[in-house]
């Protein structure tokens, strides 16, 4: 099943004016249901514009978007249905919190969907569990919480809509390493348990390599690459040339390879690096050590 499909998707800002700018230039791609896709690209590359097309916040200048086979703009009146199918967590989502209590804030999305009270409270509870919010937090004002907690409340607010496709725009921006780790493991957990499709926008190649199966690279308004982590990060030189870089371990291994060592060229995480080095050093099985 194809979860997300775009056909020659194109978006032009301020068309027919001197400020005309093509932000998304003919993107055609298919994302399988249940995939975990990392989205990388510079600020201003067009990736934010692109992801806002996937839940109908932006309307294509031309081209089409299909979610689970349905043409998004076939009937513009039904666009809200797509917003519920594709959940979008913006950068710094804690700035959108507004309700008196955490519980009510998480319930905002499900309430807009017109669900029953029982269903809403059920979803709010599940979503809160996913992001590790303790029950006693639920009746607090979201404004009393710490930065990391607010972030998780905001993410729960989108998870509670139980979208088929979940898009997160730099969900860990500005957090400390511990907070980053927590959010990533919660997202992974959510992905595994619900087998929903996840798109993760990130500037950290290390994080993308660790969590995503596939990588989508946007550069200069064009879809530069869409493939498995191996395929995409193998293009180290091109990625570096566009200033995107690759994970630090990959750089180390590329350099080793350049120096004539017979190392594998698909090393993207510390875990993989360790296994590979132990193999080379003749300590197979060291993986379990």
């Amino acid at each position: 099943m194809i979860a997300v499909k775009t056909e020659k998707l194109r978006h032009v800002y301020s068309p027919q004016t001197p400020f005309e700018k093509v932000a998304v230039d003919d993107f055609s791609l298919e994302i399988e249901e249940g995939e975990f896709v990392g989205v990388i690209g510079h600020t201003g590359s067009g990736k934010s514009t692109f992801i806002q097309h996937l839940n109908g916040l932006m309307k294509p200048t031309s081209g089409k978007v299909f979610i689970h086979g349905r043409d998004m703009w076939a009937d513009p009146k039904k666009i809200r249905e797509f917003r519920f199918m594709v959940g979008l967590v913006f950068q710094y989502p804690e700035y959108q919190l507004f309700e008196e209590t955490v519980e009510k804030d998480i319930a905002f999305g499900p309430t807009n969907m017109g669900l029953s009270a029982a269903e809403i409270s059920d979803r709010v509870r599940t979503a809160a569990e996913f992001v590790g919010l303790a029950p006693e937090v639920m009746q607090k004002s979201p404004f009393e919480l710490s930065g990391g907690q607010k972030r998780r409340v905001a993410i729960a607010g989108v998870l509670a809509m139980q979208p088929k496709v979940l898009i997160l725009d730099e969900p860990t921006a500005g957090l400390d390493p511990k907070g980053r780790e927590q959010i990533f493991s919660q997202i992974s957990e959510y992905h595994k348990k619900t087998s929903s499709t996840v798109l993760l926008v990130s500037h950290s190649m290390e994080d993308v390599a660790r969590h995503a199966k596939k990588v989508l690279v946007v550069n200069d308004s064009k879809l530069f690459a869409f493939g498995t982590v191996n395929e995409v990060f193998a293009r180290t030189e091109e990625l570096t040339a566009m200033g995107l870089s690759v994970p630090q371990v990959t750089k180390i291994f590329t350099e080793l390879k350049r120096r004539g060592f017979d190392v594998a060229d698909n090393i993207f995480t510390v875990e993989q690096a360790k296994t590979e080095l132990l193999r080379l050093l003749g300590k197979a099985g060291g993986n379990n050590a």
Binding site: D176, P177, K178, E206, P247, Q248, V249, K251, I252, E255, V270, A273, K274, L277, L278, L281, K283, G286, A289
Partner: peptide
């Protein structure tokens, strides 16, 4: 807290009994 990946690789290998210097921080 975290450490640079270069440090982490060395740390992991050392845990497996491989002899490496422990002051590695750059690529």
């Amino acid at each position: 807290l975290d450490v640079p990946q270069a440090t982490e690789i060395v740390y992991e290998l050392k845990k497996c009994g491989i002899d490496l210097p422990d002051d590695i921080i750059t690529d």
